[in-house]
Design a protein around this nucleic acid. Structure first.
Lengths: 338, 338
DNA sequence: AGTTGGCACTCGGAAGCACAGAGTGCCAAG
DNA sequence: CTTGGCACTCTGTGCTTCCGAGTGCCAACT
C-alpha cells in the first residue's frame, strides 16, 4: 500500500501534467504544491511510484508522466467529480431547452458537451430496446406497396417500405392498422414479437401473406435499429491533442467514423453510472491513447442510451466527469418533458 | 494569351505537384514529361507563368507550385473529368444498392465518396423545397395532442407535435387527414400554403382552432426544414493534408462542424452541374486552403440536393470530379427506384 | 526509518556552422 | 525562340557543442 503522501505526490503529478502537458520534475512539484517536504524526498516517492508502475519517464533525464495505471488510481481514489457551477447549470439548461425535436436535442447535446469539455463528444440516440411503441402507422403507396412508420415514446420515427405479395385494399389496411396498434401501442419493443405472433390468423387467406410481410418488416426494424445511431461533434478539439500530430490523431478520427466501434465502446461500459476507460483499457487500438468518459441517460429513472466524451488520457478528469454527468442529467429532464 | 506549350508546362506542374506534394523544378519537369524542350526553355515559361500569377515559388531557390489561379485554369481548360472504370462503376452500384432507407442511402454515399476520393465527403439530404408531399399522417396521442408526420417522395420523414387549443375527436381527425391528403398529396412543397389556405372553413367552429394549429405546424415544418441536414465523413483523410498540420487542419474541422457553413458552401454552387471552388474562392476563411467539388443530384432529372468533397487545393481534380459525378448519378438512380 | 542536502551523471534540445544540392536568372551563342 | 553555361541563392541536413533540468545515490541528520 502506498503511503498517504505518495498518493498526494501522484495526485500532484497528474494535476500538473494535465495542466502543462510537460513531464513534471521533483523540484517543480515541491514549488507548486506545498507538500512540506524537499525535492529529494519527492524523488524517493517518485522512484517508488515508478516501481509500482503508476508513473514513467519518457527519457532518462526528464520528469515523470502518469501511466494509464496512474490515471486509473487518480480517478478511482484521488479525484472527485467537480460539480458544475450554478451559471454553468443554467447555461446548459437554456441551451437544451430550445430543441424542437429529438434530432435537435441530440445535436444540441453534442455541441454542448464538446464545448464544455473541449473534447470530442459522442451522444447515442435513445435506444429502441428499452423504448415502447407509441404508434404504428401503415400507408398505402401503391396497390402492392405499403409504408410502415414506427413511432416510439422517445419521439423517434423509423420508416420502411414493404412490398406485398398480393394487392392489399384500404379496408384491410385500416383493419390491420387498428389491430396492430391495439396490441402493441404502449408495449415494450422486446414484447412485440410474441404479441403479434398470431395476428395473421385473423385475416382472409389472400391477405395473410401481406400481413406477414408487414409484421416481419416491423420485427426487422426493431432488431436492425438496435444498430443504434449516434452523433459526434467537437472533432476540431482533437487538434489540441499533442505535438506529435498525425500519428496520434489519425486512428482516433478513423475510430470515430466507425459507428460500430463507438457503439461497442459505449456498450462496454456496463455501469449505468459513470464509466471512465483509460488508454489501453479501451479495446479498440486506435483509442489506446485516449480516455472515454461515458454515462447513461434517459427520461425518468431508466437509462435508455449513453453519452460521453473522448479525449486524451491526459485530460481533466474531475471537470470532464462533472460536465458529462450534468449534461446527462439535463438531457434526461428534457426527454422526460417531451 | 499563353502559348500552347506554356499551358502544357502548367499542366505538368499541377500534375507533378499533386503527385509528389513537392515544389517542382524545371529539370524534373523535362525529365518526367517529354516536352521536347530543355530545362532552360521551361524556366523561361515558368517565369512567364509566374508573372501572370499561375504559379509561385515558396522560397527563392525552390521549385514552383500552382496558385489558386493556376488550379483554376487547370480545371477549366487543361483537365477533363476522368471517367470511372467499369469495375469501379459496378462497385459503386453494388455498394449503394444495399441501402434500406434514406438515412442509409446518405450514409453509404458518404462512405463511398470518402473512400473513392480519399477526402472528406459531404452529402446533403434530399431537399424538401423541390420535393413533393407523399402523405401527411395525423395521430392522436392524447385528447388535445396530435402528432403530425410528413412523408416526402424522397422517403424523408419529419414529425412534429401539435398542441391543440381544444380536444379533437378521432372522427374529426380522420376527416382532416383525408381532406388534407386529397389536397396536398403529390403536390410540391411550395404550393402547399395556397392549397390549404381555406381548409379550416370546412370544419365546425370548435375544431377550427385545432385545424389551424395543425396547418401552421405543417407549414412551419416545410420552412424550417429548409435548414436542411447533411452528413459528412472521411475526416480521417484530413491527416493526409500536409506537413504543417495543426494550423491547416483545425479551421477545416471547425468549418465542417458548422452545418450552416457547409450548407452555404453547397448552396453557393449555383451551377446544377459540377462546381469546383478553389482555395480563396470559398467564402469561408477556414476553407481557404481547400477546394470543394460539388454537384447536384436527385431522382429523375431534377437536382434536389448537393453532394461533394472537400480536400486540399492540391488534389487530383480529374479523378475527384469523376468520382463525384459518378456517385451523384448512381445515387440519383437509387432514389428514383425507391 | 524516514528525510535531507550534496554531487556526479545523463541525455534531450537549442544553437551554431559548414556543406551539398536543387533550383533560379541571366547572358551570349546557336 | 531555344539552348547551354555559369554564377548565385537559398533550404535542409548533418555535425558538434553546450546548457540545464532532472535523476540516482550516498552520507549525514532527526
Amino acid at each position: 500500500m502506498l503511503s498517504e503522501r505518495r498518493l498526494q505526490v501522484l495526485r500532484a503529478i497528474v494535476q500538473d501534467y494535465v495542466g502543462t502537458e510537460e513531464p513534471v520534475g521533483s523540484k517543480a512539484l515541491t514549488e507548486r504544491h506545498n507538500l512540506g517536504v524537499s525535492p529529494a524526498t519527492v524523488r524517493n516517492d517518485m522512484a517508488a511510484l515508478e516501481e509500482e508502475g503508476y508513473i514513467a519517464q519518457p527519457h532518462t533525464s526528464a520528469g515523470r508522466i502518469p501511466t494509464d495505471k496512474g490515471y486509473r488510481l487518480f480517478v478511482d481514489k484521488l479525484a472527485g467529480v467537480k460539480p458544475m457551477t450554478a451559471p454553468e447549470r443554467r447555461a446548459i439548461q437554456n441551451f437544451l431547452e430550445g430543441a424542437v425535436d429529438l434530432d435537435d436535442v441530440v445535436a444540441r447535446t453534442v455541441r454542448l458537451l464538446a464545448q464544455l469539455t473541449r473534447q470530442v463528444a459522442v451522444v447515442q440516440y435513445p435506444s429502441l430496446t428499452r423504448s415502447t411503441v407509441r404508434h404504428v402507422e401503415l400507408l398505402s403507396l401503391a396497390p402492392a406497396r405499403v409504408m410502415l412508420v414506427l413511432i416510439t415514446d422517445t419521439g423517434r420515427v423509423e420508416q420502411r417500405m414493404v412490398d406485398c405479395p398480393a394487392p392489399f385494399g384500404e379496408t384491410s389496411l385500416a383493419d390491420l392498422r387498428a389491430r396492430l396498434n391495439s396490441r402493441v401501442a404502449g408495449r415494450r419493443f422486446t414484447d412485440v414479437p410474441t404479441l403479434v405472433e398470431d395476428l395473421p390468423e385473423g385475416f382472409d387467406k389472400e391477405d395473410r401473406g401481406t400481413v406477414s410481410a408487414v409484421l416481419s418488416t416491423l420485427l426487422e426494424t426493431l432488431v436492425e435499429e438496435n444498430e443504434e445511431r449516434l452523433m459526434i461533434g467537437g472533432t476540431a478539439n482533437l487538434t489540441r491533442f499533442g505535438h506529435d500530430f498525425p500519428l496520434t490523431i489519425r486512428p482516433v478520427l478513423e475510430a470515430l467514423e466507425e459507428q460500430v466501434v463507438l457503439l461497442k465502446l459505449l456498450g462496454e461500459a456496463k455501469d449505468p453510472g459513470m464509466t471512465v476507460r483509460i488508454g489501453h483499457e479501451n479495446a479498440h487500438e486506435g483509442l489506446n491513447s485516449t480516455s472515454v468518459v461515458s454515462v447513461g441517460y434517459g427520461s425518468g429513472g431508466e437509462a435508455v442510451a449513453k453519452l460521453g466524451v473522448v479525449g486524451p488520457t491526459r485530460m481533466d478528469y474531475p471537470g470532464t466527469m462533472g460536465a458529462v454527468r450534468a449534461v446527462a442529467r439535463y438531457v434526461g429532464q428534457i426527454l422526460a418533458e417531451s
